[in-house]
């Protein structure tokens, strides 16, 4: 004898429309996929990595970096997570392909093309208030007889480091055609950084 309850149950199923079945299936599939991605997102993280070897003080182009997913435990402190925060900026030290980009390796946004980053030894009193990314006027004053002062305006301060001898090294981006003027002063002159009003230093 047929089970009336089972027969009633079988009759009930076709009352659900195919549209409703589709909607339920999509909801369940979406929830399952979202849960999977959420679990994966808790274990992994997207960070900025270098796609090719980069030399120090080079402006990062769009093709130089990419986002890569990796285990959260392998991500170092200060790792960059946004491509926009790296692209178009200077890198402050050489990076190898596949290396994760960290915050202290990223400098200010690169200035106009055709500039070169040069190190300058400046007195502590001249650079005490200078911040990375500031625009300064570079005053190159040769000491001793001969030569004349050279002024290079609106120079971007890329990085600053202390030397082993206790001095202060400032890396600035200057036009390529002013390298000679800097070379003449280096070693026998004095570099002074002058704040540019409104440069945000």
């Amino acid at each position: 004898m047929a089970n009336p309850r089972a027969a009633a149950h079988r009759r009930a199923w076709p009352r659900i429309s195919l549209t409703m079945c589709t909607a339920v299936a999509v909801f369940v599939a979406g929830a399952a996929g979202g849960t999977w991605l959420g679990i994966d997102g808790a274990r992994t993280e997207r960070v900025v990595v270098v796609t090719r070897d980069l030399s120090g003080f080079r402006a990062v182009s769009a093709a130089d970096v990419t986002l890569r997913k990796m285990a959260r435990s392998a991500v170092p402190p200060g790792a960059m997570r946004s491509l926009g925060s790296v692209r178009g900026h200077y890198v402050l030290r050489p990076l190898h392909a596949g290396q994760i980009v960290v915050q202290h390796a990223v400098g200010p946004p690169a200035a106009a093309p055709g500039l070169v980053v040069v190190p300058l030894s400046v007195g502590n009193d001249s650079a005490a208030w200078i911040r990375d990314g500031a625009l300064v006027d570079l005053l190159l004053a040769p000491t001793g007889p001969g030569g004349r002062a050279v002024v290079i305006r609106q120079v971007l301060v890329v990085d600053q480091r202390k030397t082993a001898a206790g001095g202060h090294l400032v890396f600035v981006a200057v036009p390529r055609d002013r390298e000679c003027a800097i070379a003449r002063v280096a070693g026998r002159g004095r570099a002074i950084l002058a704040e540019v009003p409104g440069s945000g230093t």
Binding site: V26, A29, G30, G34, L37, G41, T44
Partner: peptide, 13 residues
């Protein structure tokens, strides 16, 4: 591609 969850749900749902 293991995209963000919100993007997946917006696209599918």
């Amino acid at each position: 591609v293991m995209a963000p969850v919100w993007l997946f749900l917006v696209c599918v749902w």
